[in-house]
Design a protein around this nucleic acid. Structure first.
Lengths: 210, 210
DNA sequence: GTCTATACAGGGATAGAC
DNA sequence: GTCTATCCCTGTATAGAC
């Protein structure tokens, strides 16, 4: 009973650390199981496959993040008049930064996992996300549509995917970007700095004139 | 002599087709060499490794694209007054679409390779790109800085990387996005449509107020 | 139920014969 | 330059111990 929980937990912790350091495809199950000090086969026993392990690692964060976001979206939708786009986007900041309470460096960890997830193995993670959190996503899309009434829904579709790309790519290359910024501009930028730089960029892009 | 050229060429053609169909990591050297009807070991003999083969496939396009872009950038820099940001970005459209003359569906092929390349194997492609085309890149950055004199260089650095993410991610998931757009909005969007949708988004994001 | 040891097919890379 | 044979690593599946 407790031993099952321990094994699963040990695998998840080791996997999370290795995934965020070197990416999904570059991390082998043998690395994970040897760091977790468990048997190789236990990954497939407990999680079924490497893909499902990746989803489980992300799920630990999503289970905390998405209900919070859903609540914020519902709150904004309940107000009578449409909300400003920057206001809608700013809703992400707090819940994302609170992931630091889930785990040390949780925000960076999660965003890096998200970035690597969408870029490394694309397909199955996108499906997983839509499947589990489609409702929350719909609320967000509705909020954006209300804040940009001049834009057709199809244009918003494209621009939200552009924005997803911006976020995911930035987070996947977060470490490299921080290093370059430090070297070229003597700037020390932490994850919240990156997030706050992203907001005006995304807001302007999404609301751009046709 | 001719046999060397032929073998290299056959490998490049087969690799390009398979890469753009199923991505880099999902395409094995054995698939490539059997489609090209050459020996497995010849890939490593002629290109050194799978990574370098990927670079070579991209290089065929970059060798056409980058000199053209460099010329356009120089032309814009030569004009006395600073150029509008949308004008600077629009410079990409023509040279990108002309890749269709290099090969059938060349533009899509190239952008997909670029997208997959940056996301699949991140590190080495970035290095390769900066190393070979750093000068051209510098001209572009200068043009953007001139068109946004109110923005500090460090902010432009971040926003150009945001934009790179937008482009790369969009192109990597190009096929999926086209399918969704077709299903949800009855929209048939070709690659030039995506490019032209990107320009106003990017321009607004880069020039966003602080 | 949980864990271990082990086998298997497929991957990239490479040494050496030709 | 080319080709064969081989090496080591990967994810996955399963038989059997506890």
């Amino acid at each position: 009973m407790t031993s099952k929980q321990n094994t699963q937990q040990k695998i998840l912790d080791a996997a999370e650390q290795l995934f965020s350091e070197t990416g999904f495809s570059a991390t082998s199950l043998r690395q994970i199981t040897s760091m977790a000090e468990v048997n190789l086969a236990s990954v497939n026993y407990h999680f079924g496959s490497k893909k499902e392990l990746i989803q489980s690692v992300l799920q630990r964060y999503l289970a905390v993040l998405m209900p919070r976001l859903d609540g914020e979206f519902s709150r904004l939708l309940a107000s009578q008049q449409p909300n400003q786009l920057p206001t809608v986007l700013a809703v992400f900041i707090e819940p994302l930064l609170e992931l630091n309470k889930v785990q040390h460096n949780g925000t960076t960890m999660f965003l890096q996992l998200l970035g690597r997830g969408y870029t490394d193995v694309q397909g199955h993670l996108r499906w997983f996300f839509n499947h589990h959190y489609g409702r929350t996503l719909d609320k967000f899309v509705l909020l954006v549509q209300q804040s940009c009434p001049q834009l057709p829904a199809s244009e918003i579709f494209w621009r939200l995917h552009f924005s997803l790309g911006t976020i995911v790519f930035t987070m996947a290359s977060n470490v490299a970007l921080k290093d370059i910024a430090a070297a070229d501009f003597n700037e020390v930028v932490e994850i919240d700095g990156v997030i706050k730089r992203l907001i005006p960029y995304l807001a302007a892009g999404i609301a751009a004139p046709l």
